[in-house]
């Protein structure tokens, strides 16, 4: 009993997904995903193109509306009827492959917009928080720059700062380095490494295998809308249990 009550407070998952299904029309893209992410955990999702990785991530903040199953974020049932989805999303950061910065706003404007409009924080305070967030990603000196004036790596770091400024419980990354020139990938990975050090809970779709080996607590291999296998990086990359995982890992390892 005591142990059970200890469980609920101490290691309640930040993300708790059960039986998640998603169909587009008649094609089922997610076929029952069960997944839990503990506080401070960094999990990597890998899998072939079209396996449903992005869809899974996008269901976690309801950018895609799940067709079935349940998702709890930090204890909140995000699919409960009447849930304030905008309030929920403030606590779930999301970083996109194509950055999606607002091109008509400065870096600081990008970072403070949701602080002011969604979190209703007064302007001066929002600016302070925004500057802090930009400093965390190493861009304190770029607050006045517009996205068009920044490199891809810098833009992605502004996008990360935009998510961080809202003090999320979890950050979802969908191939954050795939659109970057190789020489710019490192700066973004460094920011993600720092976040991990700081204890951020992160769910990352990416094919940066070296980073996964070094930084991930867990690697999840998805194919055909299901989780085929998950485990520590050493297991998934070194000694995968399933033939599909073995094939996939061998294939992408060959590319790197």
């Amino acid at each position: 009993m005591l142990a059970a009550s200890g469980m609920t407070t101490e290691s309640r998952p930040i993300l708790d997904v059960r039986g998640l299904r998603k169909s587009f029309g008649s094609t089922e893209v997610l076929k029952g995903i069960d997944f839990r992410l503990a506080p401070r955990e960094l999990a990597f999702i890998i899998g072939p193109s079209g396996s449903g990785k992005s869809t899974f991530l996008r269901c976690c903040n309801r950018l895609e509306e799940p067709s079935g199953g349940s998702i709890h974020v930090d204890g909140t049932d995000i699919m409960a009827p009447g849930v304030d989805i905008n309030a929920v999303r403030r606590h779930i950061g999301m970083v996109f492959q194509s950055f999606n910065l607002y091109p008509h706003m400065t870096a600081l404007g990008n970072v403070t917009l949701a602080l002011r409009l969604a979190a209703h924080i007064p302007r001066a305070e929002a600016v302070d928080l925004g500057r802090t967030a930009l400093a965390r990603v190493g861009l304190a000196d770029k607050e006045r720059a517009y996205p068009g004036e920044l490199s891809g790596g810098q833009q992605q770091r502004v996008a990360i700062a935009r998510a961080l400024a809202l003090e999320p419980r979890i950050v979802l990354f969908d191939e954050p380095t795939s659109a970057l020139d190789p020489e710019l990938v490192g700066s973004v990975l460094q920011v993600m490494r720092d976040l991990r050090e700081a204890g951020m809970t992160m769910l990352v779709v990416s094919h940066e295998l070296q980073f996964a080996r070094a930084a991930a607590d867990r690697v999840v291999f998805m194919e055909g809308g299901v989780i085929v296998e998950e485990g520590p990086p050493a297991q998934i990359f070194g000694d995968p249990q399933h033939a599909r995982t073995r094939e996939f890992v061998a294939r992408i390892d060959g590319h790197h």
Binding site: N86, R89, G93, N100, A114
Partner: peptide, 12 residues
Amino acid sequence: GQWEAARSTGLG
């Protein structure tokens, strides 16, 4: 992408 970025930060 612009819509998704904004909505993902909690904007209505």
